[in-house]
Design a protein around this nucleic acid. Structure first.
Lengths: 379, 379
DNA sequence: AAGAATCATGTAAAGGTTTACATAGAGGCA
DNA sequence: TGCCTCTATGTAAACCTTTACATGATTCTT
């Protein structure tokens, strides 16, 4: 409510004020057009450059965008005029004409999430490298905000979309049947019920490797914390866990598999539950680092000596993983790469290429720290 | 001369041609233009809406932007037509005409930095609330990238600038003397040698409160880790430390003040140094949490029992502060608020208001965890 | 009842590009 | 020489808005 009010007032005031005396004046008085620009001095346009170089605006445009198509001498004159006037192409005019903005919209539930931020850096780096800018939309999983951000796409302010949310923005496909989706790529979480290319970590393989690591250290009784019937990530990681056990001919004990939604609290609760039931593993394979932290808290509280008494393994390698005691052995998500690859894929899409594969899976890297040791005989 | 000629020709030809092609049909087969748009279907324009509503495009524009200025009945027809066509204002055309993009550029050395990300969320939230979008520029402190991002400002693609970098983007003010700066606000770190409004935490006051907290717990021998002669933040925090000691009539012992650049390693090194010299405090006031972590690592390695043997205090409340053992007592930066306030200030600037104060300082909040206890007699 | 003021709407210009098409000059070739 | 091809450049349209100004219809004033 406050929002609406604020916006209303702002807009009204803005338009009412338009005529009022401009407060930013350029040093030299320039009557034409001066009354309009609220913030900047009048910028040089392509016409100014053309006049100075003694050519037409078309030639200037070509000299800038297709240098080979103009005579050397002309190009020289234009370059010089550009430098002298300080001309920069007006991006708005260009976008309007070309019908593309060279902007990518990133829709994430929480840009502050440490899991996201490095992907963000990767996205930005690759985009910038290719001449694109990125625009962020922090939706907080609020449908209204998701819908709101669609205007960036529908108003041509962004050419493509990166989705962290795991679902299509609320408001798509509402107009009777399959509305045409803009070019987009999902990251972090695949989009359910829609064919959206996805770039992420190979959860199955990563979890398999993690489990193998525990097995290689001699563990046979390995608990999996984070069973879920709804979360795709959890399901894949559990699958990898089962595959590794099976490959090592270790029977899967259902009592060793505990539910968890990936929060620290769920990890703590699961560990406590194990003690209550008194069915104890020698190692905990946690669906992610947050869960592992919960397990560690529970074990620390019970005054166990880690990792002597129990081994713990996480997944993700989030920032605190190296600071917790014991420092967490985990699988590192190649976040930077995920971002870069996702942007690369999106830009390819924008250039009209159909993606080779619907999803790109990158390998997680095993990071060995102090939370895993050999079991049993050392107890 | 060239202009005059061009205009003459244009007018003649234009009016002659205007009648002929006038692409009358709009519904189905649209051969023209189809070959151009690589990505989107043709979007509805204001003309489509106008045609459907049976009014002029000017009226449509007014119905949308200044609803009170059109008759009720007309507004109804327009609204209906908008809904039917799915019309969205083309942001590029609008920006071109209005000479403002309603976009804010955020320049940060590393968007992935956990210290930044929550400020980012605050910035985005406030911007979005006020109808602005945010665009991120990750500079990695690379002058080339900083310069590169200036085009967003100079090409009208962004109306204002938020600076995390602590310095003006490389490339400003290069054109002989004081180039006019675009509206901008610094955050996280004030900008040296330039009058840029700043929003941040009150480092002096926060540090004073932190020191007071230690004093109130009975500490008299308090070390300050993080002395610096160059970093403004460090200097302010040291000042707060000194002020608190002075107010409590505790003499400042120079041996209790150790240099540090704010990294974890510098914290570890400083603590080690104290042991080497064997001048020990009962509490460590660290310039930030990263430094505190270094101190904790050093003390843990030496097998001290924390916080019984030593108390440690940080500053910032970065994400791992609560996970480290012992959980860190620290001063929390109101990051979300900083972001919101900074954006608020910038938007005010854009509306032509001069800022009341050149800097806005927000209070840090004392977060009590487990790393501080009463000294001495409990040892 | 005539003129003034107000209101709702329309017309057209302007904002700064890119690019299809036109044009003019130069060079190649029969 | 006459014709064709190339190359370099210019002309003007199109991209889609917002808004100053004009217009015609109402209502208000005196």
């Amino acid at each position: 409510m406050y929002n609406v009010h604020a916006i209303g007032v702002a807009r009204f005031k803005g338009s009412a004020k338009r005529l009022a005396p401009r407060w930013v004046s350029k040093p030299d008085t320039r009557p034409r057009g001066a009354e309009r620009s609220v913030q900047h001095q009048k910028l040089a346009t392509i016409e100014d450059v053309a006049a100075l170089a003694g050519v037409s605006i078309a030639t200037v445009s070509r000299a800038i965008n297709e240098p080979t198509k103009v005579a050397d001498e002309t190009r020289r004159k234009v370059t010089e005029a550009v430098a002298k006037t300080g001309y920069t192409t007006n991006a708005m005019a260009r976008s309007l004409r070309m019908r593309r903005s060279n902007m990518i919209l990133i829709l994430a539930p929480d840009v502050g999430d440490p899991n996201f931020s490095n992907i963000l850096v990767g996205l930005e780096t690759e985009a910038s490298k290719r001449g694109y800018g990125v625009l962020i939309g922090n939706t907080q999983n609020d449908p209204a905000r998701e819908t709101d951000y669609l205007r960036f796409i529908s108003s041509n302010q962004a050419d493509g979309l990166i989705l962290f949310t795991g679902h299509l923005p609320y408001g798509f496909g509402h107009e009777g049947g399959e509305a045409r989706l803009p070019p987009m790529v999902a990251v972090n979480e695949p989009v359910a019920n829609a064919e959206v290319p996805f770039v992420g970590v190979d959860n199955f393989e990563g979890s398999r490797v993690a489990t193998e690591h525990l097995i290689s250290q001699g563990h046979r009784r390995i608990a999996f914390i984070g069973h879920s019937t709804s979360k795709a990530i959890n399901m894949l990681r559990e699958k990898g866990y089962r595959a590794a056990l099976q490959a090592a001919r270790i029977e899967v004990d259902p009592r060793m598999i505990l539910a968890g939604d990936g929060t620290t609290e769920s990890g703590r609760a699961a560990a406590e539950h194990m003690f209550v039931r008194d069915v104890l593993p020698s190692a905990f394979l946690c669906v992610n680092d947050a869960t592992a932290l919960g397990v560690i808290i529970s074990l620390n509280t019970r005054k166990y000596d880690l990792p002597r008494d129990f081994s713990i393994m996480g997944f993700d390698d989030i920032s605190f993983a190296s600071f917790v005691t014991p420092a967490l052995t985990t699988m590192k998500q190649p976040r930077l790469k995920i971002g870069e690859k996702a942007m690369d894929l999106l830009l390819a899409l924008l250039e009209g290429k159909r993606p080779a594969q619907p999803e790109v899976l990158l390998r997680a890297e095993l990071i060995v720290r102090n939370s895993v040791s050999r079991p049993g005989h050392e107890r």
